[in-house]
Design a protein around this nucleic acid. Structure first.
Lengths: 232, 232
DNA sequence: CGACTCCTTGACAGCGTTCAACAGTAGTGG
DNA sequence: CCACTACTGTTGAACGCTGTCAAGGAGTCG
């Protein structure tokens, strides 16, 4: 699914440093909207486009042959995704909610690469490096942390990326969180309940179950217990 | 620990495509030897050098504050490691066995980067991309595969990197394998026993416990069950 | 209203961890 | 040479964290 939308300004919360200069060249980008749940690209599809989230949220993931899913990253407004060095995507990407993105052809965006355009090249390398850093931190989480630590780390990551709002409004469902953290929805739910019972956070009821208020970020950070001081 | 050794030719089994051109510039490299178990660099130390394994093996890892360890990668002869985009290493590195490496100063090796040396730049980006690809595959393994699948995937990875020898001589201990796969030594040992009892492989006895013969690589690959056709 | 999805919670099972015992090998020193 | 210790790896038994299964509440959609 792939719907052209008329041009109108989008209030992205922040545009992080990713590929800043490239992102600024508005002329390169085409505005596209994806409905909740729709696929943006599939694993091993040709990587002809690069994407920037303007509104909404995106998940990128891999699957095992029997359907087990591992989400590699969530992409929030301002984030760029779909950048590949090879010819094909190594992840699939889907819109978590109704999402507006800017799309640029890889060829045009990275035209400078072959010709030695230093700033473009550095931008791409910095971007890939940040992606790698995130993946490396995630390895430690998936390999060695328990369920409560994982959920705490996830909340702190999202909290930080949303710039510590009073209420965290999660765009994703529990299943997405579970597949990001290598857990089941039930375990994610239980971990949230544990943290709630400890007074570290509050979870909305009813329709607001995806809204979370952090009461004690430092106590949350203690549980994560990563020597690495910052995640993202 | 850090011992200069006299110059002599090292029969590296293969030099993989990583940073090929840079690696060929022998003049840039200094030969250094590390004893088994010694630290090559620590996490968050300045990343002033880049390393290439010539003989032996290296593990790179992160730790949680209470000591839990996650090994991110094993580096075998021909592999380059320690390349960072930032100023500091995001992993620690140790020699698994007595190891000879070539060391180059980051500054000299990547001098061309700032000046727009396209081939050097592409080499680095390709290298980082391959590292990222490995980490991404590892995310799926750590988040969603069971113990036997993990051990099978590990064996196939090493087997492939050693170019499918008749006998795989693992340089690392069970603890290293466990910390790479997010398991305990006991679980790794049990998974190996399961695969042995299924006739998929043989494990050496006594001193040869680190030697493994694969009898049925396709059956091993079935257990891994990754849609991704190749790992490395 | 009924059917459906999402989330939480409880009961229980199972996989992997923990704890323990043991074998095999190496190193040390009497 | 042998006793003793230390280390690695395997195996068994018991435990526990997380997964599985099930039920129920809340909300949506037609």
């Amino acid at each position: 699914m792939f719907i052209q939308v008329s041009a109108n300004e989008i209030a992205a919360k922040h545009v992080s440093g990713q590929l800043n200069e490239l992102a600024r060249q508005r002329a390169l980008w085409r505005k596209v909207k994806y409905r909740e749940g729709s696929e943006i690209f599939g694993e091993a599809e040709p990587a002809d486009y690069v994407y920037q989230v303007r509104q909404g949220a995106v998940r990128t993931y891999k699957r095992l042959c029997d359907g087990r899913r591992q989400i590699g990253a969530f992409h929030l407004p301002g984030d760029i995704f779909g950048v590949e060095d090879g010819k094909v995507h190594r992840f699939a990407a889907e819109a978590i909610v109704d999402t507006r993105v800017w799309v640029a052809t890889r060829r045009r965006l990275f035209a400078g690469l072959a010709k030695g355009d230093t700033s473009a090249t550095n931008n791409v390398r910095n971007f890939v490096t940040r992606t790698l850093e995130h993946a490396e931190n995630h390895l430690l989480l998936l390999g060695r942390q328990n369920s409560v630590e994982r959920v705490a780390a996830f909340l702190l990551e999202i909290d930080s990326r949303l710039e510590q709002p009073y209420v965290i409004v999660l765009p994703m469902r529990r299943r997405d969180i579970a597949d990001y953290l290598g857990l089941t929805v039930e375990t994610v739910s239980r971990a949230l309940s544990i943290l709630r019972d400890e007074g570290v956070l509050s979870v909305g009821r009813g329709l607001m179950r995806r809204e979370i208020v952090l009461h004690d970020r430092s106590k949350l950070a203690e549980r994560v217990c990563q020597s690495d001081p910052e995640r993202h």
